[in-house]
Design a protein around this nucleic acid. Structure first.
Length: 423
RNA sequence: UGGGGUGUGGCCAAGCGGUAAGGCAUCAGCUUUUGGUGCUGACAUUCGGGGGUUCGAAUCCCUCCACCCCAUCCA
């Protein structure tokens, strides 16, 4: 069977074809504010997979621009997940926070170009001024500030002279843009918080729209792959890079995020379950986190295969969890030894058997070419699963009934002579 | 008449003008000391709806409909 190419690979090949890039560089850029789940696995598979397929490389970058939600325990979990899935990132782990100095310089460059200004409206005013989806917004009076004043204010913001929310750096684009994201987007906010890596070195932090595109650029990324909800952010992504005159730059491409029925994949909800103690930690086997699946016995191969099977597209979709379950069963089928357990026991006494013996019970079915067996004790008293016996069997019942004998796995055929009930 | 996206069988998803891949699920048969696995077969006269162009359309044009995203100093 010929595997068809997804639209991202088609695009990558096209870019390679026309010489847009000489090397494919992607990146997996999670925010370290929670444990990675199966949805991250899809992104990991795409980014590392594409880099691998086209002899490029993929970076692992912690998008740590929000000091109040991020933590080092999450970067460890993220690193472990990527490794467990079998991928290796290029060089060392990157951090957007490592680029803060450069990002700061780019912000100053924008101010000098008259393309960014310090706004002093409060949060509520900024929202009001932004207008609505159908009505144009209006520009803040502070947008008229001179380059000098903006530079001075920005410097003082950096020095920590102002309180959170007092001022903010925004791009000067278009307050009536039909794309709401382009109505003078916020670039840098004041945040007097301790960053898990940068400590208290900064009192201003870049926002996603400013930091992401530049981080991609700094790393030489060619294809910045993200999920659909960022489609509207693509215009800013391009605006920042183009306005700064950065050539030979990355371009953003979006795909639909993974949704699986009966599966909670919202980070907010998962965090809530963990915090409230509804589950025993991020690696609780009941959770769809990579760590949870690992403890549940899922294999990296099965998860990767699942990501491969569901494909990549731009259509919002909800994959049937049966598809995931098929992948894990399919993978485990030829790898795992079989043993038995009786959960709800029903006592069986074999009247024409005396003594006891040990039966060799193979670990693998006839069609799995693997050796190995364990000893199974056998005597006249044994227990079978309650569901494996029925006095009034429904149609199509293949197990033990008063009139139907059955073979005990690895042992003998038995038939029911008498039913003895407790009370 | 805000803008940006998406609509192919129950669920994913190929297809890019030449007469609907594949996977999951489901159903039937064979195999089977797991009602597992494996094998075989069945499963869209039809591609959100309606027009049009064409010898020919899921693929091009028009129009309508549905759903998702955007008004966090989150990412």
């Amino acid at each position: 069977m010929i595997q068809s190419k997804d639209f991202l690979r088609v695009k990558v090949e096209e870019d390679l074809q026309v010489g847009k890039y000489k090397k494919i560089i992607t990146r997996f850029p999670p925010e370290p504010n929670g444990f990675p789940h199966i949805g991250h696995a899809k992104s990991i598979g795409i980014n590392f997979g594409i880099a691998h397929d086209y002899q490029g490389h993929c970076n692992l970058r912690m998008d740590d621009t929000n000091p109040s939600t991020e933590d080092t325990q999450y970067v460890e979990a993220l690193k472990e997940a990527v490794e467990w899935l079998g991928f290796a990132w290029e060089g060392k782990v990157r951090y957007t926070s490592d680029y803060f100095p450069q990002l700061h310089e780019y912000a100053i460059a924008l101010i000098k170009m008259g393309k960014a200004y310090i706004d002093s409206l409060d949060e509520e005013e900024i929202r009001e001024y932004r207008g609505t989806v159908k009505e144009a917004g209006k520009r803040s009076k502070y947008a008229k500030r001179s380059v000098e004043e903006n530079l001075d204010l920005f410097e003082r913001m950096k020095k920590g002279e102002f309180k959170d929310g007092e001022h903010i750096l925004r791009a000067k684009i278009d307050m009536s843009a039909s794309n709401m994201k382009m109505r003078d987007p916020l670039l840098y906010r004041i945040r007097h918080a301790t960053h898990f890596r940068a400590g208290d070195a900064w009192s201003i932090y870049p926002l996603y729209d400013f930091a992401h595109c530049l981080s991609d650029y700094i790393e030489g990324v060619s294809h910045s792959i993200c999920t659909l909800e960022f489609e509207n952010n693509r215009d800013i992504y391009n605006w920042v890079l183009d306005t700064l005159g950065l050539s030979s730059r990355p371009y953003q491409h979006e795909f639909a995020r993974l949704g699986i029925n009966y599966t909670v994949m919202s980070k907010r909800k998962l965090l809530e379950l963990v915090k409230d103690g509804q589950v025993k930690g991020w690696d609780d086997p009941r959770l769809p986190t990579i760590a949870g699946y690992k403890r549940r016995g899922y294999t990296p191969e099965s998860i990767l295969n699942f990501c491969d099977q569901i494909g990549i597209s731009k259509a919002n979709s909800l994959v049937d969890v049966a598809q995931l379950e098929f992948c894990i069963r399919d993978d485990l089928n030829s790898k795992v030894p079989r043993v038995m357990a009786v959960l709800d026991p029903l006592k069986v006494t074999i009247t024409n058997y005396e003594g006891e013996e040990e039966i060799d019970a193979s670990y693998y079915p006839h069609d799995v070419p693997k050796e190995g067996y364990r000893k199974l004790p056998f005597s006249s008293t044994l227990y079978i699963e309650r569901d494996d016996f029925s006095e009034n069997p429904p149609k199509g019942y293949y197990r033990l009934t008063p009139s139907q004998s059955v073979r005990l796995k690895h042992a003998y055929i038995i038939s029911c002579q008498e039913i003895i009930k407790d009370s």
